[in-house]
Each structure stands twice: as C-alpha cells, then as structure tokens.
Design a protein around this nucleic acid. Structure first.
Lengths: 146, 146
DNA sequence: GCTTGTTAGTTACAAAAACAACTATTACCA
DNA sequence: TGGTAATAGTTGTTTTTGTAACTAACAAGC
C-alpha cells in the first residue's frame, strides 16, 4: 500500500458540492444572522411566505423539503418576533394559515435585495452561459427536474 | 403587494447548492452510515488518512476546512473503533500522528469503491464535458482555485 | 532561567438538528 | 353511527454541531 493513493477527494461530487454550498451560504448567512438574528430554517420560511403569500406549514415543508418540526419551530420563532401571523383555518381546524406581518414583509424585502446582490457577486466569476449551465445541472442533481 | 412575487427561490444559488449537495450526499451517506455507523466528519477523516497516509489532526483540519473540535471528536470515535491509530510525536509532544489501522484501510478501500461507483451514477445524467464544467465552477465557488 | 505568546489538541457548555411520540381534528368505511 | 386510520402541527428527547475556555507543550525575547 503506497500513499498517497489516487482518489481525488476534492473532486468527489458530494464533497465538492458541500464545500461550494457551505462557502456560498456564508456570505448570505452573515446578513440574515447578524442583521435579524434569523436561522437558516427561519429565512427560508420567511422567503416562502414572502414569495407565495399565504401558506400552511405543511405546504412550506413540502415545497422546501423541510421536516415539519423544523418548520413548526421556525414559525414559532418568527411569530414570537411578530414577523409572521398565524390564523387557524375555519374549514379545517387542524390547519393554520401563515402570512407575513408588515414587519415580516419589510425584513423579507430587505433580505431579498441582499440575496439578489449577493448572488450577483457569487456569479460574477462566471459567464452568463456558465451560470445557466451550472443552475441547470444543479437542478438535475437536486432532483427538481427529470 | 401582490403575491406571488418574482423572486425565484429555487434558483437562488446558496439555496440551490444546498439542495443539490444534500441530495447528492444522501446515497453515499446511506452506505457509510448503515454499513459502518460513521458520521460525515468521520468518513472525511478516514478518507484523508486513506489518501494521504500519516497526518496530524491539524493537517486534516486545514486540508478539509474542518474545525479542530470536529476533527478531534471524529478521530476519537474512529480510534475507539480501532479504525485509526494515534501516536504521540517524539519531536513535538503536542502533536499526534494519525494513521489508519488495517481495519481502517479495509473500510476506506470499501468506501472508496462505493464512492466511485456512486459518483458515476450521479454523473450519469451529465455528459463528460458538463461534468468538467460543473466541477470547475464548483471549485471556483468553493474558493479552492484563484 | 523566566515571562509572554503560540500551537496542538481536548473538554465543557450552549445552540441547533434529527427522530420519535404525542394531541387534536378530520376522513373513511363497515 | 362508531371505530380505525390519516393528517396538521407540537412537544420531548437524543445527537450533533458550534463556540469558547482550557491543558499541555513548545518558542522567543529579555
């Protein structure tokens, strides 16, 4: 057994994707965490509601492939901070409709702005065509297309 | 404020990368977890040692951008299972040299095999050229080049 | 030598995530 | 109906991670 052997860890896709994902998340995390004290699961819920308006926790979980306990706790914290408003459904009393409050809207719009600018800076290293290719391939890998 | 607005969360790079990374990790995780009861940080340490031979914990941390406490705990568990052998350095008694045991080698070789096969199946959806492009861009994003 | 600073690695505590069990409500159907 | 299963969401418990403080060993300057 001679070392080093020829396996290239840096090029192993799950590993490489993870490194890229972590790196890419950092810059944005810094903002939502430092500026608003949000967790990853929380900005995600916030964005879902910002984009689609009124949703239930289950719908958010399904759209974002997030476990319901994560959604539940994220919603709890967002509601505590008055960023999200919860309203029990009249038709089905198990269901709770979620919506951003005006304060939540404000945070969402600010973070959306940041997100767009931040993504721009990430993609600045790539050409428009490369960007399209990259996203297409990531979508395939994420199993969102077929 | 009309909903839904035009921000595309699925196409937001940090989000998309995360989804792809998670999805891509699942298949491999299933093997190292179910077959050997390893955690993510553990298979990584195992691979570093399998590839490069004798390393210190600090070197592993630097190469893989992993915090030293994570390495420390991974090494501890690997040593408990007799997959890694630790030896205090004679020149500098703060340093510990880490190496795979024969049992560790065996696990490494098996998992390397699995990794290669698994990556092949992931990349089967892509052409050779696409694969090269994808990895190149991910390397850029991961900040490994420049 | 002795003080101060640095480095390798561990440990302790707090934050977050994963998993399972639970309550409440609705749906199904014999 | 009444009993069983399914669904929405929450709560409790265990793992895992992150952060900071710590011990031990070495380095460097005086």
């Amino acid at each position: 057994m001679t070392k080093p052997d020829d396996f290239d860890l840096q090029a192993f896709l799950p590993y490489l994707l993870n490194q890229a994902a972590e790196e890419a998340s950092l810059g944005f995390q810094k903002v939502y965490k430092d500026r608003y004290g949000l967790l990853r699961s929380e900005w995600r819920v916030l964005f879902h509601l910002g984009i689609f308006g009124r949703l239930t926790a289950t719908e958010i979980g399904a759209q974002g492939k997030v476990h319901k306990t994560k959604v539940s706790r994220a919603v709890q914290r967002l509601a505590d901070r008055r960023l999200v408003k919860r309203a029990r459904s009249e038709e089905d009393r198990r269901v709770e409709w979620l919506e951003l409050t005006p304060a939540g809207e404000k945070v969402y719009r600010d973070l959306r702005e940041v997100a767009q600018g931040y993504e721009g800076s990430l993609l600045a290293q790539l050409s428009e065509a490369e960007m399209q290719t990259l996203k297409g391939m990531l979508l395939k890998l994420a199993g969102r297309t077929n």
